[in-house]
Simulated scan of single mutants.
Amino acid sequence: MSKTPDGRPRAAPTFWEMYTCPSCKAASIALVAHEGDEDDGVFLRWVPDRPPVKEYPDSVPKAIAAAAAEAHSSLRVGNVQAAVLMARTTVEATAKAKGITTGNLVAKIDALYAQRLIYEHVRDAAHEVRFAGNDAAHGDLVDDPISAGEAESIVELMDMLLEGVFIAPAKTAAQAAARQARRNASSTASTNGAVVGNP
C-alpha cells in the first residue's frame, strides 16, 4: 500500500464493479479497492454475499423445503445431477410427510394420487422427477447425460408437486378461514346493530 508524504498509509480508492458469475450467469457487484494504476484490486465486499436461496412458504415442511431449495441451488451453479437427485429426494420426502411410507417411489407417488392428494397431471410430473432421479442415482448418464434444460424442467415439476400437496391446500384453507371470519364479523355486526322496538 502506498503512503502519504508523512508516512501514513494512503487509502486506496474503492469502486463498485459489476461481475457475472461464471457458473449461474447471475449478475453481482463487488466493492473493489484499487491501488494506483494496477489492474488487480482487492475485493472488499460482494452483493449478494451468498447465492440466492429459493424460499418456500411455511406450509411446506422445513426439511422438505430445505431439500427443494438445495435442488434449486444446485441447478443455479450448474450441478445438474445433484439438482435432479435432490428433486427426487423431495418427491419421496413429500410422500412420507403425508404418511405414505411403504413401497417403492412408484407406489408412493401412486398412493398420493389414490388418496386424492394430487391431480393426475401432478402424479405424472412426480413420476418424471422419479425417472430422471433414478437415471442420476444409478449412473445411467454415460450415453445420455441430463442436460441443464432437462434438469431445470425436473426442478419445476418438483415445485409443481409441492404446490399441489402443500402450498395450494394451505392457500385454500386460509382463504376459506378469511371468508368465514368476514361472515362471522358481518353476522355479529348485524346482531349488535339490531333495533329492538317498543312492545
Rank of each mutant, 00 (worst) to 15 (best):
R45L: 14
W46N: 08
V47S: 11
V47Y: 05
V47G: 00
P48W: 01
P48H: 06
P48C: 07
D49N: 13
P51V: 03
P52H: 13
V53D: 04
V53K: 06
K54P: 09
E55Y: 12
E55T: 10
E55M: 10
P57I: 04
P57L: 05
P57G: 02
P57R: 06
D58S: 12
S59P: 04
V60H: 08
V60Y: 08
K62C: 02
A63L: 06
A65L: 13
A66P: 08
A67Y: 09
A68G: 10
E70D: 12
E70C: 06
E70Y: 03
E70K: 05
A71S: 15
A71V: 11
H72A: 11
S73C: 01
L75N: 08
L75V: 02
L75K: 03
R76T: 07
R76P: 01
G78P: 13
G78R: 01
G78M: 13
N79M: 12
N79K: 01
Q81C: 05
A82Q: 04
V84W: 01
V84T: 03
L85I: 12
L85P: 04
M86D: 02
A87K: 01
A87E: 08
R88P: 06
R88H: 07
T90H: 02
T90I: 05
T90S: 15
V91I: 09
V91A: 13
V91N: 12
E92R: 08
A93W: 08
A93K: 05
T94L: 05
T94I: 02
T94E: 01
T94Y: 02
T94V: 03
T94P: 07
A95H: 06
K96N: 14
K98R: 11
K98V: 05
G99Q: 13
I100F: 12
I100V: 07
T101M: 14
T102Q: 07
T102A: 14
G103S: 11
N104S: 14
L105A: 09
V106G: 15
V106Y: 14
A107H: 15
K108Y: 09
I109N: 08
A111Y: 00
L112A: 12
L112H: 07
Y113P: 00
Y113D: 11
Y113V: 00
